[in-house]
């Protein structure tokens, strides 16, 4: 019997998701035994034509990590969609935009200007910028992909069948997702694979250290406090997003006394991850006076970065509304 064909591709991603696949360690050999990898630009020498030459729908599953930021990404993911039975958004960036998605707080022009002209490490007196087409010789013109106005989560570009959460997905989650896919017993389309159906608190070893009422008088940033690793971090005033974040990661950050930053994303009922996060977090700030409330919440210097760290492009409002680009 022919083995299932698998493609792996990265869009706007740090490469951590690729590492995560490699982190399967011994198990990667099992994977390789079970499937044929037909496309994996990071690790293997395939060309885009190899994919184009495959019949439509012939790839069993494409694992795509990273958000869609370039015309190239857009082109390849649409191609993979056409060639694949299943498209899996692998990792937080692909699912909701991830950290690179925070660039949606700036316009394309603002980003280019900063990166090529204004960043402190840039020396560019001629104010050159990358050109889409560059003639290098008489006959040869090099083309670069264009930067899209915004970063998009995969499902705003193509239909996505399943999501594997995490920044990056842990080996455990990745393996569970693969097992589910190989089992043939597929969950409903749109499901999150490999993770929990409850929030991180449910798995968190510190959950039972919470007092009856979880209320806080102060907000601290991680570097401002030596957190007690044996007590719920939220109750110590840290912006731990465990309550609003899907479990399944094994509470890795918590075990290192770092608050959850939300890389496993929301649970199914949540409409807007950041909206829900600010709702529960603000609710527990135990003051009634408006000035006190403002003062304490004001200690969150960057609410967009804290509450939308991984999900800005997938949020209800997608990113900053930029008048100039209308």
């Amino acid at each position: 019997m022919e083995k299932p064909k698998i493609a792996l591709y990265w869009c706007a991603s740090c490469g951590g998701c690729e590492e995560a696949v490699v982190d399967l360690a011994d198990k990667i050999l099992d994977v390789v035994n079970l499937v044929d990898i037909v496309f994996w630009p990071v690790a293997m020498d395939y060309k885009i034509q190899d994919v184009e030459n495959l019949p439509d729908g012939s790839i069993t599953a494409s694992f795509i990590n990273g958000g869609v930021r370039l015309t190239e990404h857009e082109h390849v993911v649409k191609l993979l969609r056409r060639k694949s039975k299943l498209v899996i958004a692998y990792g937080a960036c692909s699912a909701w935009g991830g950290v690179p998605g925070l660039a949606n707080l700036y316009s394309r022009e603002e980003i280019l200007r900063y990166v090529y002209h204004e960043a402190p490490t840039v020396e560019n007196p001629d104010k050159t910028r990358p050109q889409l087409k560059t003639k290098v010789e008489e006959e040869i013109t090099l083309e670069l992909p264009d930067l899209l106005p915004r970063l998009l989560p995969l499902d705003l570009v193509v239909d996505v069948d399943y999501y594997v959460p995490g920044c990056p997905p842990t080996p455990d989650v990745t393996w569970k997702a693969i097992e589910t896919l190989l089992s043939g017993n597929l969950p409903p389309r749109g499901s999150v694979l490999g993770a929990s159906d409850k929030s991180l608190c449910y798995d968190c070893p510190l959950n039972e250290t919470k007092p009856d009422k979880v209320l806080i008088k102060d907000v601290k940033r991680p570097h401002e406090v030596l957190a007690d690793p044996s007590k719920c971090l939220l109750t110590q005033g840290l912006t731990c997003l465990g309550p609003v974040t899907r479990g399944g990661c094994g509470a890795l950050c918590i075990k290192a006394a770092m608050p959850c930053t939300g890389c496993f994303g929301p649970l199914d009922e949540v409409i807007d991850y950041g909206g829900k996060a600010i709702s529960y977090f603000a609710s527990i700030v135990d003051y009634a006076d408006e000035e006190e409330i403002k003062k304490v919440l004001g200690k969150i210097l960057d609410p967009m970065g804290v509450f939308y760290r991984y999900s800005l492009p997938a949020s209800r409002l997608r990113g900053k509304i930029i008048l100039a680009e209308r």
């Binding site: 409850k198 608190c201 449910y202 959950n207 919470k210 009856d212 979880v214 465990g242 527990i284």
Partner: peptide, 10 residues
């Protein structure tokens, strides 16, 4: 599907 995070209690 309750995760027993206790937020509601307070």
């Amino acid at each position: 599907r309750c995760s027993a995070c206790s937020i509601c209690v307070g």
